[in-house]
Amino acid sequence: MHARRERLEKLGAEVVFISFDEPAAIRANLVDGVDLAFPLLVDRDREAYDAWGLRRLPWWNIWLDPKVWWQYGRMILGGERPRAAGADPYQMGGDFIVNGEGRVVYSRPQRRDDRPAIGELIRALEASASG
């Protein structure tokens, strides 16, 4: 992550993460997976999720997805418990890049578990910086 952060900084880019979970849950569950050199925004009311048009999927899209079952199986085999009540597995996320003029130059709303790799985001940033 370190080299990537340097590349991002060289591009003059910032990164923000947004979560709708409770701050305590974010701290407990998420901090390991996210580089907290970048701000993490808390959106309990999902104002921003709504304003950015991010969907909640109907349940069958989640539970008929073999990847989800695979993850569940792995989690249970690994001795983990299923998620705490109150978590919402249907809310989708997404990745966007906004340029210096406030325009969206990269838009990848999430469907199921697909997410762009960080390298793809950096390439998109580089393309928008040079374009």
Partner: peptide, 12 residues
């Protein structure tokens, strides 16, 4: 400044 805006799913 360019900003990468990354919306997460539920924690975990």
């Amino acid at each position: 400044r360019a900003v990468v805006v990354s919306f997460l799913r539920h924690a975990g």
